[in-house]
Design a protein around this nucleic acid. Structure first.
Length: 469
DNA sequence: GGAACTCGCCAC
DNA sequence: AAACGTGGCGAGTTCC
């Protein structure tokens, strides 16, 4: 049954939420426009040089022979033709519409050095044309005012545009440095970023209430390390040793998170192999002893896996099928049962209602049915916090301002004189007030804070904690 | 000549 | 049996 009270609360909540987001949009975020222009020029020079380099390759020469004056190295239709018709290479995978894919992953698997130059060219173009051009175009008086929308996303998350503030590079160090080094606080201020730690996993637990997961969330034990131990059969994961950190990251990003989104073991194999430096090709009968990352002892991951009887990707796939089965049918059995029940209920009712009161209806696939409520409700935790903080900011007359939001994190432009107070209030609102008001939150919430020095750009952020007393 | 689609790629 | 969730955006391509 639809809980009408909760639904009406949700309706009012989004009105309040959009007003808070409007304040964030109005505050805006400062960029260094001179720097933007200089960086854009520098990128243009690099792009020209890269293009010249590409023109020397065999790949380009074949391309130009085929398309003559119509040659356009940004055309993937042309690239597909050159690679798979002219050069008759074996396609790696298909796109959604059945063409031969020419994305980074596929190109790398072709085993042709020439594609590296093209990929570098694409990366540079992306940084310049999507990010810097966007910043320059959208700024007024050196300030960006990205929009934050609540009416565009099926899960009741937010979106952002003009420019999109929610997809500025972070993982790739080169792209990150270029794009984030133009983003600043107002003069004499500093940027503070506050992230909810593992928010989606915590909110998922409020739905399924799996005792094993609740144990992790309440004890602070490390799920990803435990999975790394299981997948690679190692006794301990010491995150300070690079190779073990890699194994943990492989377990986290190659298995745990994809599984939570509804992925399955066959894809997990490819992702994990990528992380640990092994080929995932099922044609390989046995990995070379020298393959993959190395333990401090000098043993390679290939040698280590072979000792477990896993000597090739096919063996690893069989192993991961067992791990997956254990993961859902034993370890997180209650979570798995919740997913089935949630889907069955949706199929019977034709809709479901989130813990935050929102209704999702219409045709949905299984994975969507179990993912939407989690994704939406997690974001609503942030949105609730933003509403309170904007109110407090106004009431107390802060000079500090929230200037951005990325699903489970907020970016604050802080007056240094207010830093301690602002940080304490944020911590109280996000971790104490919220779970008190939303009683369905049955797990502890925590935030991680990162702070930049005064007048420093966004890349200067360092892990930071509120000092005692 | 512009709308709509497709692909690739960035974020969570 | 089925098989990764949500967006925005640039550039190329297709369609009218």
């Amino acid at each position: 049954m639809i809980d009408k009270k909760k639904l009406f609360d949700a309706y009012l909540f989004f009105h309040e939420g959009q007003l808070a987001l409007a304040e964030i949009e109005r505050a805006g975020i400062r960029i260094d426009i001179e720097k933007c222009l200089a960086v854009r020029q520098d990128l243009s020079d690099k792009i020209s040089a890269c293009e010249e380099e590409f023109k020397k390759t065999f790949l380009f020469q074949t391309w130009e022979k085929t398309f003559s004056d119509r040659t356009n190295i940004l055309s993937n239709v042309q690239l597909e033709h050159v690679l798979f018709k002219v050069l008759k290479l074996k396609p790696i995978k298909a796109t959604a519409k059945g063409r031969n894919a020419t994305d980074e992953e596929s190109l790398m698997q072709l085993g042709i050095a020439d594609v590296n130059v093209l990929l570098r060219y694409r990366k540079l173009r992306k940084i310049r044309d999507t990010y810097l051009e966007g910043f320059i175009r959208e700024q007024t008086d050196g300030v960006l005012h990205p929009f934050f929308n609540l009416h565009t996303v099926r899960t009741y998350r937010s979106s952002s545009d003009h420019p999109n503030f929610q997809n500025i590079p972070r993982r790739d160090t080169f792209a990150r440095d270029i794009t984030r080094k133009v983003i600043f606080p107002r003069k004499g201020h500093q940027l503070l970023e506050v992230d909810y730690s593992g928010l989606e996993v915590s909110i998922a637990a409020c739905y399924h209430k799996d005792p094993e997961m609740l144990k992790y969330l309440k004890s602070g034990a490390d799920l990803h390390s435990d999975l790394a131990k299981k997948i690679f059969n190692v006794p301990v994961i010491d995150k300070t040793i690079p190779v073990y950190k890699k194994l943990r990251d492989a377990a986290k990003n190659g298995f745990v998170f994809p599984q939570f989104y509804g992925d399955y073991y066959k894809n997990n194999v490819d992702r994990i192999c990528d992380w640990i430096g092994l080929s995932p090709s099922r044609e390989i009968k046995e990995w070379d002893d020298s393959a993959g990352i190395k333990f401090p002892s000098g043993l390679t991951i290939a040698q280590h896996l072979k000792k477990q009887g896993i000597k090739c990707p096919n063996d690893f796939e069989a192993h991961m099928a067992r791990v997956e089965r254990w993961f859902w049918k034993e370890k997180f059995k209650v979570y798995d049962e919740w997913k089935s029940k949630w889907v069955t209920s949706y199929q019977k009712q034709g809709y479901f209602q989130t813990l935050t009161g929102f209704i999702c209806k219409g045709e949905m696939r299984k994975n969507e049915v179990v993912n939407y409520p989690i994704q939406g409700s997690a974001f609503h935790c942030l949105l609730w916090s933003l509403i309170q903080l904007v109110k407090i900011q106004k009431k107390e007359g802060w000079d500090s301002r929230i200037v951005g939001q990325i699903h489970d994190s907020m970016i604050v432009d802080v007056n240094p004189a207010e830093l301690m107070h602002v940080a304490k209030v944020i911590k109280k609102v996000t971790c104490e007030d919220l779970p008190r008001v939303w009683q369905w939150i049955i797990v502890p919430l925590s935030v991680e804070m990162e702070l930049c020095p005064v007048d420093s750009d966004w890349t200067c952020k360092k892990l930071w904690e509120i000092p005692e007393t």
